[in-house]
Design a protein around this nucleic acid. Sequence first.
DNA 1: GCAGTATATGTCAAATCAGACATGTTCGCA
DNA 2: TGCGAACATGTCTGATTTGACATATACTGC
Lengths: 110, 110
Amino acid sequence: MKKAKKAKLEAAGWKIGSAEDFLDLTKEEVAFVDMKISLSDSVREKRRAKRLTQTQVAKKIGSSQSRVAKMESGDPSVSVDLMMKTLLTLGTTRSELAKIISKRKSRRAA
Amino acid sequence: MKKAKKAKLEAAGWKIGSAEDFLDLTKEEVAFVDMKISLSDSVREKRRAKRLTQTQVAKKIGSSQSRVAKMESGDPSVSVDLMMKTLLTLGTTRSELAKIISKRKSRRAA
DNA sequence: GCAGTATATGTCAAATCAGACATGTTCGCA
DNA sequence: TGCGAACATGTCTGATTTGACATATACTGC
């Protein structure tokens, strides 16, 4: 299974087994998961741009390194709320946030 | 206390007592709460534009009328996740969502 | 007045998400 | 090779958010 697809399903809260599972998400669910992935990527980008470690970010937002790692990996246990709060804490403006939300994922090479 | 201010504090999870409480939010907290208010307003606008009752929206998103009411009133118990899922279900596109996020609140008459 | 419909508000148990911690992996460097 | 730093992953317990329900309020037409 393609990595992006896997990430989407997992972000939606599903576990991918060894069998060829297939679950169709509604259009809205796909949009929501895509958005979460955009936010997730942006957290990593913002953090790197500011040359901070996950531990340093964790301290800023009053959380832990593992939760920051989960944010960046698109773990389904992370809410949009938390990622947005994190981005804002990292100095992202509302209009930058808007760009992140609207951003279509550029297809990455698998 | 101004209504908008009250809404912000409440949306941030604080109860306003009778005494002249004052809690200063950080810049990021204010931005986050503003954003939630924008989303909240948008849920109501979108629903009305589609001429749906709260009960009908609740059914669409698999929730209850009371939760939709809370979304629209900016209740602090409502997450950004839920409001975004709702907006997407109501046909909002990601780029429209982006506009909502970036939107500065126009000052309402108190 | 009284129904009926729409929305608001408060509460609760169950589900989800949180921070914390342990531990595993990966990388660079001496 | 071994060490240390950064990051990933799994899992606890507690906090927050959830849908559901009861109930209140507001407005309509009769």
